[in-house]
Amino acid sequence: MAVTLAPTRNGQRPSSPSRSRKLSPGRIVAWTYLAVVVVITLFPFYWILRTALSNNYLLASHPSSPLPVGFTWGAFERALGIASPAQAQAQGGSGASLDIPLYLRNSVIYATSQTVLIVLFSSAGAYAFSRLHWRGRNLVFNVLISALMVPGVFMLLPNFVLIKDLGLTDTFGGLILPGGLFQAFTLFFLRQFMLGLSSEIEEAAIIDGAGPVRIFFRIVLPMSSAPIATVSLLMFVNAWNDYFWPLLVTSSQNVQPLTLALGVFKQSSPTAAPDWAGLMAAALIAALPMLLLFLAFGKRIVNSIGFSGIK
């Protein structure tokens, strides 16, 4: 499939099909369209920030003010649970405290350990399925890859029952293991890359007497650092944003990740006059790691999209 080759070609195209750099009417229309797209894309992010920095009571009287209304850090203090109940209620909060730092810790544990496990196991598997030669290799690989056929949604219920049978509900083990041992996409992604590695260095190492394990850690892993970084990023983002699986298997705030906490926060604020400022502050805190990752690795993420399309 052509798309799998796309990332390596990025930026290597000598010329774009654009006709001229002149400001023709067509280009003005095109840039106007892009400007509209960018505004629609970014405006909600600005609105999160603007609302999070507002006083929730005053929001009601100036709902369309483009700037924060009655600028205050109070919403963040409420979201982080460091505002006193009286203080929180004075600014339109619920007074109920929510331990965001705890949820943040859970999200970090969940996303980090699942990413580390899946990337480690997938690269070990990918190595065995690409660089080692053994009978039945392709057969086993094809069986594993057939997992791509079954939609995740179909396995949610039976997997929940399984985790319950194993007594792992509301534990990090139950949260992490199903996605931490095996995911067809990561295995496939890394194997495709490792198949393309040149075997010359490997052969030199074999002549020097290195065994397969040593070759894996000393040669293949370092040579695959770029795709491993890409796949780690994608897995981290996925786990960080996951909602449905944690909703099924976790029930206490000692395990629940931030995505669930946002739902709890919304329910705990009064329905007649919701604490939108606090909610947006909490959303911003939850989104911040993704925004930072984006600032640091944006280009890598963008270039990985051509490949991850097979997902």
């Binding site: 070990a124 598997g125 065995a128 053994w134 009978r135 039976p158 399984l162």
Partner: peptide, 30 residues
């Protein structure tokens, strides 16, 4: 090749176990 086999089997254990427990079994159980 014969030397590769034991190492390969060792390396694919997590993937195969994960596949069997959390993909194959739940699919049929579902």
């Amino acid at each position: 090749r014969r030397r590769d086999l034991p190492v390969a089997l060792l390396l694919i254990i997590p993937s195969v176990v994960g596949f069997l427990i959390f993909y194959a079994y739940p699919t049929f159980r579902g």
